[in-house]
């Protein structure tokens, strides 16, 4: 007991340092969380959230009542898995490439440019995507025709869209993830590489035996956190980029677009809270599971 107390005492500076963030999250995130109860109520704001009548799980019904409920969940999860895996692989790859560019000016130019897509809103991206995919004047069809092929109506066939959306997503996020990986690569002690060099290790061996193992914590963390977002999707990517085209729903409809379309005319606060809660609780369980698993494998790498 005394030992514990001593630890507490010694940790006081750390608690003080944590305090600003603690207060911030309390105000910004935890205080408003009482709003979650709206998921179980028939909300009328004039009566107040508390006085609105309880309706049990009624608000959740619309998420599962549709014949497409399974399809929507499958789409959301599959896209997320693909984005997560590809995002890490390419993020690491590009991060390493960036770190190998030793010309400082060139490195800065590259870093600036690959972050450009991250700055564009999905509205703009949807127009730019159309510049490529438009049936009549799109770049892709023009190339196809020059090569002797037939112009394709990209917005009419759902089969193309898993690839199109994945490419756009990777294009938009690669700058972000590679810069994160770059920062942890840059943090690797140069001594390791020098020692390896003296031992005659070539670049590839250095990458394999030094860089990759040392960025593992970052990768593991990003994957655990990614599990929490499994049921969420980038609304702009799935709604705006396919131009809200009905024919593409089979491969572009996700939970978020479904909820948006469902509640467009209803404006039902309880139902949208229910959808959010559903996404959160599944993400929560996945994150707990992932963390538990990692903890089993390597105590140090677990988040909590």
């Amino acid at each position: 007991m005394n030992k514990k107390l001593r630890y507490f005492k010694r940790s006081i500076p750390f608690y003080i340092m944590f305090l600003p963030a603690f207060i911030y999250f309390l105000i910004n995130n935890y205080l408003p969380m009482f709003g979650i109860i709206m998921a179980f109520k028939n909300v009328s704001f004039r009566d107040g959230i508390i006085n609105s009548p309880w309706v049990g799980l009624t608000n959740f019904k619309f998420l599962f009542a549709s014949a497409d409920a399974w399809l929507i969940t499958r789409n959301t999860v599959l896209y997320n898995v693909v984005f997560l895996v590809l995002g890490q692989l390419l993020g690491i790859f590009v991060g390493i490439c960036l770190s190998e560019v030793r010309n400082k000016k060139a490195a800065r130019v590259y870093q600036t440019l690959i972050l450009l897509p991250h700055l564009m809103s999905m509205v703009i991206v949807s127009y730019l995507a159309n510049a490529i995919l438009n049936e009549n004047y799109g770049l892709l069809n023009r190339i196809l025709v020059v090569l002797g092929g037939e112009a394709i109506n990209w917005y009419a066939d759902a089969a193309y869209w898993p690839y199109i959306l994945t490419i756009i997503r990777i294009w938009a996020s690669i700058g972000f993830s590679s810069v994160i990986y770059l920062s942890s690569i840059v943090g690797i002690n140069e001594d390791y590489y020098e020692a390896a060099c003296l031992d005659g290790a070539n670049k590839w061996q250095q990458i394999r035996h030094i860089t990759l193992p040392l960025i593992k914590p970052t990768t593991v963390t990003l994957i655990i956190l990614g599990m929490g977002q499994m049921m969420r999707s980038d609304f702009g990517l799935f709604y705006l980029v396919p131009l809200n085209t009905g024919a593409l729903f089979r491969t572009t409809q996700t939970i978020d677009t479904y909820v948006y379309r469902a509640l467009m005319t209803l404006g039902n606060t309880g139902m949208s809270a229910a959808a959010g809660f559903y996404q959160s609780i599944v993400g929560f369980l996945l994150i707990l599971g992932a963390n538990w698993l990692i903890r089993k494998l390597s105590r140090e790498l677990a988040l909590f």
């Binding site: 910004n28 995130n29 408003p32 969380m33 979650i36 977002q229 949208s272 959010g276 929560f284």
Partner: peptide, 13 residues
């Protein structure tokens, strides 16, 4: 981590 998962929505915030 919990703050990344759950939120109370716009009106309470």
């Amino acid at each position: 981590v919990f703050t990344m998962l759950f939120n109370g929505g716009l009106v309470p915030t």
